[in-house]
Design a protein around this nucleic acid. Sequence first.
DNA 1: CGCATTTTATAGCGGGCACTAGAGAAAAGT
DNA 2: ACTTTTCTCTAGTGCCCGCTATAAAATGCG
Lengths: 219, 219
Amino acid sequence: MAMRPETDDESKPQDGPHPSRRQGKPRGRPRSFDRETALERAILAFWEHGYEATSVSDLTRVMGIGAPSLYAAFGDKRSLFEEVVRAYGARYGSFGDRALAEEPTARAAVERMLREAAAGYTEPGRPHGCLVLHAATNCTTPEVEESLRERRNADIAAIESRIKAGIAAGELSADVDAAALARHTGAMIQGMSQQSRDGATKEELEALAELAMAIWPRS
Amino acid sequence: MAMRPETDDESKPQDGPHPSRRQGKPRGRPRSFDRETALERAILAFWEHGYEATSVSDLTRVMGIGAPSLYAAFGDKRSLFEEVVRAYGARYGSFGDRALAEEPTARAAVERMLREAAAGYTEPGRPHGCLVLHAATNCTTPEVEESLRERRNADIAAIESRIKAGIAAGELSADVDAAALARHTGAMIQGMSQQSRDGATKEELEALAELAMAIWPRS
DNA sequence: CGCATTTTATAGCGGGCACTAGAGAAAAGT
DNA sequence: ACTTTTCTCTAGTGCCCGCTATAAAATGCG
């Protein structure tokens, strides 16, 4: 698998000891790589190929470090993946939470979620679709698969809560099935993620988002 | 690796996908297992765990045969998987084609597809969701992943064709976007498959199917 | 300068992977 | 009976997996 052909352009551990690590001075030999950029490259690798299909030697190659450095800085493969999932959620997967928190109505929040998913899942220069959906399917480590499954179901539950809040606020009729509406939104987002992996364009996903909004009761 | 000594030899009793009935008796020691039931168990194993996460020793265990018997009867792991995908399509994955062929309108066909997906993806006693969707995501063998991707896109193209035929037959308005409608149906089915894997019940998926049909223009 | 501490590169560990060689076992042909 | 053909069982093959023992390198401290 062709990940990143180039590595190791810096020959020296940088003279300026990047001081943003700890308040005290580190005692031993300083780390020769930037932990954040290494983590970002691990995110991209896991995002594109998934947990199992990304081997430790794949990781050391794209992160530009040796295996002992990886284990010293991030723990074993599974704890690195957990950190990757957390960082992915903060950097790439928080558009849904933001939409739910910032938009004035549940309908507007869901519409924004779908539109941002259409754009984010097809963003050039990074893997398509959603890491939480695709990185741990068919996983031989059941705990890893289960942790992402819980995250997916929690996301749908968050949508349901927002819709219920919208009903309570009077913006939606009381006989709206919040759970079904939330599940529909989740299924659409998951379908869009799959479509983006299968080659759908941003415009096609945006048409999908617009179509999906037609089921919403007029508010 | 490519040196299997007796592959595709015409003089042998054909071990092809369907040995309907051979003319004459086979010469050597007879096979001690039923090829069809072994194949069915391989289907269930790949369906549940996916291509990569199902090892050959997993397969020999659930199929009840030794590794040499597996390789003699089915070829290597990849050709077994290809035969599994074909048999799965014929036995479990053909509800979509049947709906498209048998229902009188495109709308009725899609509605039936969604309802049968809701039931089939949550059928007790067998893996949930769709093998074509889940068995080869994050695959280190790109050809396997690609073959299922092509199958998924072909399924959506078949829906689009049926919708276009419906437009031509006058059952749908000419300004209906057949491609978008077909993609929406595909995304819904893919989302339903994911939901079923994440624990959704048949009733929840049926509510999803009903909700999804609300986007269809009244016909 | 030692000396302690931490990270680095090298090299390899045990184990599971897909796959197969070789010999025996069970049938039909002669 | 004997041969031929085909399948089954045992016991591996080499390879890659996640992971680590070891020692050299690079820093701060006295």
